[in-house]
């Protein structure tokens, strides 16, 4: 049946002198299946390109994930040092902890590219990677002020005319909102840390009095 049909087509084609029709006829007549082969191999190549791109993207995103993990590790390490300084009950003398940024070999993130900042509520770190900013943040558990002790005392003296030490308690009625609000609003400013220098974490007490008794408000100071 097929053979018969093909013969009829041939007959029709040979009767027409037009070269374009002749070419189409040759194409139809051709049963070597070149077009079939080319189409299927092109599809195969396209599919493999898509799969290879997907695998490559997955590998690239996994290196992003590793960098992000490392950044989180650096942030968590600093945040947990600040928290552990807060969880020590000092008794009479205040405690000072020195934190050194870990610079071991084989780190993906070099410390020069790293931006670490501390505010009263968060430790944030970020770095630029090919125009993208990757960042990580951790909330702190204790009340923290990114000041040096001298700075803290001068801020308190400037506002209350008393530096909040045991000898010079600040006059403030319960619940001492003027002191706590002042410190939390000034602590909202970021302190950018230099990763090649030590970070000093220490406890500080601000003494307040409502006239009858003296209370101690505990803070953690972070400075360099």
């Amino acid at each position: 049946m097929k053979m018969k049909k093909r013969k009829e087509v041939n007959v029709v084609c040979h009767n027409l002198p037009d070269p374009a029709t002749d070419m189409i006829c040759q194409l139809i007549d051709n049963d070597r299946a070149w077009a079939d082969l080319i189409l299927s191999k092109t599809a195969l190549i396209l599919a493999s390109v898509v799969i290879l791109t997907a695998v490559y993207a997955l590998a690239a995103s996994s290196s992003d994930v590793i960098e992000k993990n490392e950044l989180e590790l650096i942030t968590v390490d600093l945040a947990s040092h600040i928290d552990s300084a807060g969880s020590i009950h000092p008794g009479t003398e205040n405690l000072t902890v020195t934190y050194v940024f870990d610079t071991y070999a084989g780190q993906l993130i070099s410390h020069e590219r790293l931006n670490i900042s501390v505010t009263g509520e968060y430790v944030t770190s970020s770095f630029e990677d090919d125009g993208n900013t990757i960042c990580a943040a951790r909330a702190l558990s204790y009340r923290t002020v990114p000041f040096s002790p001298e700075n803290l005392r001068s801020v308190l003296t400037g506002k209350f005319a008393a530096d909040g030490t045991r000898d010079q308690p600040i006059n403030s009625p319960f619940p001492y909102t003027d002191v706590t609000d002042l410190l939390s609003s000034t602590a909202a400013e970021e302190l950018y840390l230099n990763t090649s220098r030590d970070v000093i974490i220490e406890q500080a007490s601000v003494f307040v009095t409502d006239g009858s008794e003296v209370r101690e408000l505990e803070y953690i100071l972070v400075h360099q």
């Binding site: 807060g86 909330a139 702190l140 558990s141 204790y142 009340r143 923290t144 319960f174 619940p175 408000l217």
Partner: peptide, 16 residues
């Protein structure tokens, strides 16, 4: 004992 409780929670960050 509002004052004692305030002093008890004062050390912890306001976020918690």
């Amino acid at each position: 004992a509002k004052e004692e409780r305030y002093m008890f929670f004062q050390r912890f960050s306001e976020n918690i």
